[in-house]
Amino acid sequence: MKIETERLIIKPFERHHFNEVYEIFKDASTCRYLLHDKWTHEDKEQKFNKKLNNNQLTKGRALNLAVLVESNVIGDLSVWYTDMKDTVEIGYTFSKSMAGKGYATEAVMALINYLFKTEKVHRIQASLDARNIASEKLCRRVGMRKEAHFIQDFWNKDEWTDSIVFGMLKSDYVNFNSSYT
């Protein structure tokens, strides 16, 4: 599986991506709103191997994808099926050095396009820490709608946090894209 956009290549991780991925996930501020802490020297190999093994989307396995500019990994896209029929959840993490260049928007739009057109999903959702303003803005830019804000519903990293859920139906996607053609 490979997705190409004007500036990006999105594909499953390969062994030689290891150091670039570690550079992204070893940063504590990058991992602040993620479910896991920053990668350490001790656990980086195990965590990267999980990304390598998640190379195909199935009902029982997540898909992890490298986002590349030229041949450099700048981000990570994840997608997995929820318990609801034809519904997937997406996640994304990008290198701080790439912020403000539109790469995250381009990559997530390409992933959404792939999921609706190729995987034929009915619904895409994203659950985020309510404090993650950048992620919320990204969801809005790609046409997702805010569907819920849960108050202190999630225990993560020794604190209760609020969660926000964004969603998009295939019909939303069609209407969102037709407004730009």
Results as ranks from 00 to 15, higher is better:
R7S: 08
R7F: 07
I10T: 02
K11S: 13
F13L: 04
E14S: 10
H16S: 15
N19D: 14
E20M: 06
E23C: 08
I24P: 01
K26G: 02
D27E: 14
T30D: 05
C31N: 10
R32P: 03
L34R: 03
W39V: 03
D43T: 12
D43C: 07
K47L: 10
N49P: 05
N49M: 09
N49T: 13
N49E: 13
K50C: 07
K50E: 06
K51T: 06
N53A: 13
Q56C: 14
Q56F: 11
L57K: 00
L57C: 03
G60W: 09
R61W: 05
A62G: 06
L63I: 11
V67C: 02
V69S: 09
V69A: 08
E70M: 14
E70C: 13
E70H: 15
S71Y: 13
G75L: 09
L77D: 00
L77T: 02
V79A: 04
W80P: 03
T82I: 11
M84R: 13
D86T: 10
V88R: 00
E89R: 09
S95F: 02
S97W: 09
G100L: 10
K101D: 05
K101Y: 10
G102A: 11
Y103M: 11
A104E: 04
E106P: 04
E106T: 08
A107M: 06
V108F: 01
V108W: 00
A110P: 01
N113F: 06
Y114A: 03
Y114M: 04
L115T: 03
L115E: 01
L115D: 00
L115W: 00
T118C: 08
K120M: 09
Q125C: 11
A126K: 01
S127C: 14
D129W: 03
D129K: 03
R131G: 13
R131F: 06
R131K: 13
I133Q: 09
A134G: 06
S135M: 04
C139K: 02
R140L: 14
R141H: 10
V142W: 00
G143N: 02
R145K: 15
E147D: 07
A148W: 03
I151A: 07
D158P: 07
E159I: 08
E159N: 11
W160I: 07
D162Y: 05
S163H: 05
S163Q: 13
I164F: 02
F166S: 01
F166P: 00
G167W: 01
M168I: 09
M168R: 02
M168P: 01
L169A: 11
L169W: 05
S171M: 13
V174W: 08
N177L: 12
